[in-house]
Design a binder for these strands. Structure first.
Lengths: 120, 120
DNA sequence: GAGCGTTATGTCTCAACAGACCTAACGAAA
DNA sequence: TTTCGTTAGGTCTGTTGAGACATAACGCTC
């Protein structure tokens, strides 16, 4: 229709992947994991994302429980009060999800544009 | 937590597409539209999907409002009490969404498997 | 040992949402 | 004119979830 403008930033696919029963992973948890990895602290990540610590902890706990193996390792007490970091499983999870999300948006750009065209 | 079987089809991508603010479309609404098209009645579709008529109507109304143009056309009174059917916009919406969903699951199979492998 | 910041929970409240129930309007058919 | 099944809502309630708050445990540092 309009070949000139290609700035379609208002549309995007946010994949939520369902693994097994009750366990799901979406953009929210991935962002949280990424921030925890960056700041090495659940509390700091929660502050940065403007969510209550409790919620951040619940989300991470649900991942740890759901995967059977921990996605985030924590230590309490000690220098700075403690901290948190991603396990290799957690790192892989973020990496794989990013790859999936990137591919989804790239490969499906055509169909996305088709849906978007309907909103005009 | 048992591994169950190896051939677990329990993983899939359910895309929810965000168009503009407040307007989103996901598998639920698409299924509803499909059923309305099939049965030519909102009430009948709601019964088949085991959801209250009110909810079905609210979902459809949100689509009609969100798109600015109606996605479902209705008539009240008359033979059989009335009925409903998809507009061409509604039909296109279902078609485009189906194409997107199919492509997503096909093209991203590799990355999906990678994520799934982490759950073992 | 006291202080500190973090992890780890429990509990309470409030808003949002889903579902249930109810009523009105409509128009063809009987 | 009455009946009937549908569309089109309004309203109430139970449930769920998020957020706010409180508290304990932990282990370095001072």
């Amino acid at each position: 229709m309009r070949p000139t403008t290609k700035t379609s930033a208002a549309i995007l696919v946010r994949p939520r992947i369902y693994l097994g029963k009750g366990l799901a992973i979406g953009p929210g948890k991935i962002d949280l994991l990424r921030t925890v990895a960056e700041l090495k602290s659940i509390a700091a990540a929660a502050r940065k994302l403007s969510i209550p610590y409790k919620r951040a902890w619940v989300l991470i706990d649900s991942l740890n429980q759901g995967f059977g193996k921990p996605v985030v390792e924590t230590t309490s007490g000690g220098k700075g009060g403690g901290g948190a970091s991603l396990t290799t499983l957690g790192q892989q999870l973020v990496e794989k999800y990013d790859a999936l999300e990137r591919r989804l948006n790239a490969q499906a750009a055509e169909e996305l544009a088709a849906v978007r065209a309907l909103t005009d």
